[in-house]
Amino acid sequence: MDWTIIQQALPAYGHGFVLTVWLSLVGIIGSIIVGVIASLLQYFKTPILSQIATAYVELARNTPLLIQLFFLYYAFPVIGWRMSSITAGIIGLIFLGGGYMAEGFTGGFQGVTDSQINSGEALGMNRFQLARYVVFPQGFALSMPALAANVIFLIKETSIFTVIAIPELTNTALDLIGMYYRSNEYLLMLVIGYAIIMIPVILLLNWLERKVRYGAFGD
């Protein structure tokens, strides 16, 4: 272990760290928005749009991010859609994450019990009132574990961005290893970098999950 190497690499890792956090944040927020929209289209069975949403969710969930990124970054320019690697990364991550989030929300909506829905119906609620006052509040609470898992998953998926040379954490480490042929120090810093991001995120999500669950169901 050579401490001077670690010291010298700190600024580069700092940049990579910030980029990873930033890309994750944008990706997660975008995924939640896309996921909510897709799951609502599916829930209300909007003609055509709901089929499109379902096809999208299945495509996004059943293909690797890496190939989605290659498509965006290498194949799209051929038909004239050129974009920066960062743009491709964000679009790819949101494409992927939106599918996962939609699946999570849909699972939550489906988890709302029939008896809860019946009791809403028995109070004369229409489809939209039922959704607004019964299914969504409880469904979103039920989808919290899936949402938490997706957040963790998406943060880790940003490491795939290295394949289109976005200088996030993993890419930073690989670059340095390639340049200086020292792996132990750079890998250690990489592992610590992810630990610094993931440990607080996991703790926060656990706390949030308990809180939402208690708020909605009291256990």
Partner: peptide, 16 residues
Amino acid sequence: FRILPSVVLLYLVYYI
């Protein structure tokens, strides 16, 4: 394993 991305795991094995 929950904390580390699979890319990182793969490289850890690959280099170590």
